[in-house]
Design a protein around this nucleic acid. Structure first.
Lengths: 203, 203
DNA sequence: AGCGTACTAGAACGAATGCTCTACTATCAA
DNA sequence: TTGATAGTAGAGCATTCGTTCTAGTACGCT
């Protein structure tokens, strides 16, 4: 868990608020109140103000999610099952948290992509890390590098798209559906490889 | 094209600003300036203020996209090709517009899902329409209803997720990758049907 | 002890926010 | 002409925004 000093409380509170209201929808007053910290402390720990704080939030939660991905991959020998498990777990979390966004990064990234270049780059780096991680796992499962990369991109996009849909429909079912489709995608690549040693030659 | 009266200019300007800066990132002053309309006119046409205006924007662009979907389906006899074509077209548009969000709905929906219930429901309805439309096309191509529904959800989520990634990375390639994967998904369902059970012969 | 750094504390600032309000103009009907 | 309605016009409202500023406290160093 995260330490309980002021700085960490600010990061945690900001992350949670971003997930509910986004970047522009979250005021620093809300942040300082939720973290029970004065404005002075905020600007001491994050001299760059709001966007500085947001940057750290994105990096922190980005790393946390990466760790979660790895954990789920590790606990499922079958990659298709791992993929579906992740979506199912997310759907469950959504339901239990009254459909608060599970991930501040996607929402914030889409909001600020045209107004805060440094923040945009940070979000980009985080997504890149996720994609590399997923691509590595898919390659390890025996999928060809090019296909694995493409599939990893598809996977991360499906996750973010799924969060959006679960949130707007206030229903986890769509997230589960998307998970099943992504699983199909992974498994069809795996059987293609098993049948033709890398290249698809018959069907 | 849209008529040039004040009300339409307000809708168009708001849509464009939402695509760049999102809901909370767009001020009504920006809107009235971009539309060259006074505040009084805004509140005359949209008595509910900002969220009222946003609602109309979501509905309008939602309908426009639905029409675009249908158009692309119509001009491609092969459903897999239609899917990929849509993603490729989106990637091209993104590039040409300096990676402004092609769709205000996804971004706005994610922003306000926890703060504006009516707006959330509007976005939900729009997505529902898209999904129904896509599911209908997939069923018409011969995919079983349950699978078609699930695939349609996956498709719309992939589109929104793809927009996010293209925007964040300032690169259309990922959107194209996602499109290829979605095409694979559609085609694997079609070949499964052709190879498999009962009603095989209609083509 | 005294000094310096790290951090807390919150009042205050100018700029901006969404929105209300009154005044004015254009158009059509009676 | 008169009156009603639709729409334009923008000054002004209270509130909130992100940020700055000064003052004070806690704590390790020499």
């Amino acid at each position: 868990m995260m330490p309980d000093d002021t700085r960490s409380r600010l990061i945690a509170a900001t992350g949670e608020l971003f997930r509910r209201y986004g970047y522009n929808g979250t005021s620093l007053k809300q942040v300082t109140e939720a973290a029970d910290a004065p404005t002075g402390s905020l600007y001491h720990h994050f001299p760059g103000g709001k966007s500085d704080l947001a940057q750290v939030v994105l990096e922190t939660t980005g790393a946390a999610y990466q760790e979660l991905f790895e954990l789920i991959w590790d606990s499922h020998p079958d990659p298709g099952a791992a993929v579906e498990a992740f979506f199912d777990a997310a759907a469950e979390v959504l339901k239990q948290t009254d459909f608060i966004d599970p991930c501040p990064i996607g929402g914030v990234a889409r909001e600020i992509a045209n107004s805060d270049e440094t923040l945009r780059q940070t979000a980009d780096r985080v997504f890149d890390g996720w994609i590399s991680s997923a691509a590595g796992r898919l390659r390890a499962a025996g999928i060809e590098p090019d296909v694995a990369e493409e599939m990893a991109v598809s996977l991360v996009a499906a996750i973010e798209g799924g969060f959006l849909h679960a949130r707007t429909s206030r229903n986890g079912d769509r997230l589960r559906m998307i998970g099943r489709q992504q699983r199909r995608l992974v498994e069809s690549a795996l059987t293609a490889r098993a049948a033709g040693d890398g290249r698809v030659q018959d069907r």
